[in-house]
Design a protein around this nucleic acid. Structure first.
Lengths: 351, 351
DNA sequence: ATGAAAGCGCTAACAA
DNA sequence: TTGTTAGCGCTTTCAT
């Protein structure tokens, strides 16, 4: 048992089902029970040093790693934090970057799961994802923009920019109210009075807040929001494009549009291009989020920046704290600020 | 059995272990065996319509979703494609965006797993991740920039921009050779002759190729690459910063630097700022990748763009094809092209 | 049409 | 110190 014939190793690797080296393969090779292998691999007490060394040799020789699936099923915990999202798009990937950078060196693995097969607005992906992963596979979850009530779970959950749910999980979001107000006031400062709005997803709290703030900022400036200048863009570029086309083809069209997020701002810009409307000379556009693509656009998109990576990092900390039984705030809010770039300019002089 | 008292539902939900509704809970509620529930949920034949309907009612009432862990352990397949990466950073998240957009509407879920706890250069994360997830949890994998030989598996694997391994899995990458050559030639066109290079990770094929192409382009122009003008940046901003500091403090410093990726280009720019060297007046910098951050920088980074999202989409298609037993190319290469922006300019006149 | 039972890979009591 | 055994939640024969 002090030496392993190489051909035995080969046999193990080339076995009919070479799809994975299991704990049984190791046990057989090492001539011990699976329980012993498990103890060695997990550093439990009660194994003779010689046996442990011997097992480790085989483990390395065979390249064994425990199946995360099997161990989590049995153990009930993994050291992995799940990030549940409706798809990998600029918003959620910024969050991911923040979480990943922040989790570096901590003893947790990250698992981002996109359960939405058809579409991120396939209702209920977040419920399904939680149900499928919670209790096994992940120890805690960060859910990006959930729009429905989440299943009750003992597993720590933190939401990012969620639907408003009084007894939902703790969540972090940015100050949409102040951000949207600042955006609108900036447009006002530029001399615009005809300011439209592309609304976001109405099932997300942030969209409602942004609309309300836009409306209030106008009212405070003594301007009555024109109902013809507000449309639903659903936070999506294509939808926003469609509705912006309509909005901009009216006789009396706005000279500035505040879009509820950057994607819809891009949709507005697409529509403006389509109609030959010059930006920012004839139309100012301001978005929300400041995804990297905002700065890449030509001209660069003026927008309300939220610190997405910081939001991710904060959410991660909250989940970890919950895991450790610490108390966490029910709600953490981070600031948003206007980033002035190339899609906004002074209001055109003539109607 | 036609109606379920609400308090029974409540009991199920509030059970001591409310962490997850299992198939047993459903079976008990519905007064059938777990086998029957399983059949219903999976649409198997041999269940009376009435029973099926009854079970479905309970499933919905309880919000049951099968545990991906348990079912994959038993069934051996999951319909989820894993994307294994060393961390969520701009390069890998662009790939993710491409995969996600492309996978939309297909019947696969996506699971991105970051197994590197300490650092993306923690050697062997890709081997470990594959071992831990393969055979269970995921049906196929896309591995982003693996640097070591991967374990043998029956599970379909596609690599993106990998270490050169003759009997490694099929892979997709961009034409680093042509890209790096074009970058260097562009610098040459601008009149630069003193052109340095920040190398990438030497355990990645792309880094070697880019260095070679840079060297060859210089030789073809009758210029001998100065050994003092090449340093290892490991594809990392901080490392590149360090070595660029050294390189730029030499008496005879380059007037242009080709960095093996955008992150190292940023490192070079950091160093230049530190030293009060103006970009692009005194130093031209060109990167590689064209991550979104390249266009966000000030000035915007000139770089060699690779179609990262397309690369992801192609890799996804390959995995799916392999899953279906179709033949796939061993190697797919996509083009790279120089994107001229603000960090490059004519060579300064004086030494 | 339905259910009992085995087993996927693993860990943790418990026995030896 | 080591191995035997039960069982995590699920699916799938195989009886009934």
């Amino acid at each position: 048992m002090t030496d392993l014939p190489l051909d035995e190793v080969a046999v193990a690797l080339d076995a009919p089902n070479a799809s994975r080296v299991t704990i049984h393969d190791v046990a057989r090779e090492a001539g011990v029970s699976v329980a012993t292998v498990s103890k060695v691999v997990n550093g439990r007490y009660g194994v003779a040093p010689a046996t442990a060394a011997q097992v480790m040799t085989v483990v390395e020789k065979l390249g064994y790693e425990s199946s995360i699936v099997a161990s989590s099923l049995r153990r009930g915990s993994t050291n992995v934090i799940g990030i549940l999202l409706g798809g990998f798009e600029p918003f959620s990937t910024e969050i991911l970057k923040g979480i990943s950078a922040h989790a570096l060196g901590r003893d947790y693995q990250l698992l981002a799961y996109s359960g939405a097969i058809a579409d991120d607005r396939e209702v209920g992906w977040e419920r399904r994802s939680v149900s499928r992963l919670a209790g096994t596979l992940i120890d805690g979850a960060i859910i990006v923009t959930p729009t429905v009530t989440l299943p009750r779970t003992k597993m720590p959950i933190v939401a990012i920019d969620p639907y408003h749910d009084p007894d939902g999980p703790p969540f972090v979001d940015c100050d949409s109210e102040a951000g949207a107000r600042a955006a609108t006031e900036y447009l006002l400062e530029l001399g615009h009075t005809k300011i439209g709005h592309i609304r976001g997803r109405l099932d997300l709290e942030s969209a409602l807040v942004r609309e309300r703030a836009w409306r209030q900022a106008l009212l405070d400036a003594g301007i009555d929001p024109n109902p013809a200048w507000i449309r639903d863009g659903g936070y999506r570029r294509e939808w926003a494009y469609e509705v912006a086309l309509e909005m901009l083809q009216q006789n009396d069209r706005p000279t500035a549009i505040f879009a509820a997020n950057d994607q819809s701002a891009f949709g507005v810009i697409d529509a403006a291009h389509e109609l030959g409307i010059m930006i920012p000379e004839q139309l100012s556009v301001i978005g929300f989020d400041d995804i990297p693509e905002a700065a890449m656009a030509e001209p660069r998109l003026t927008t309300v920046a939220q610190p997405l990576q910081e939001i991710g990092a904060k959410a991660f900390d909250m989940v970890i704290d919950m895991l450790k039984g610490k108390h966490v705030e029910q709600h953490i809010r981070v600031p948003a600020r206007v980033v002035k770039r190339g899609t906004t300019g002074p209001a055109p002089l003539a109607g």
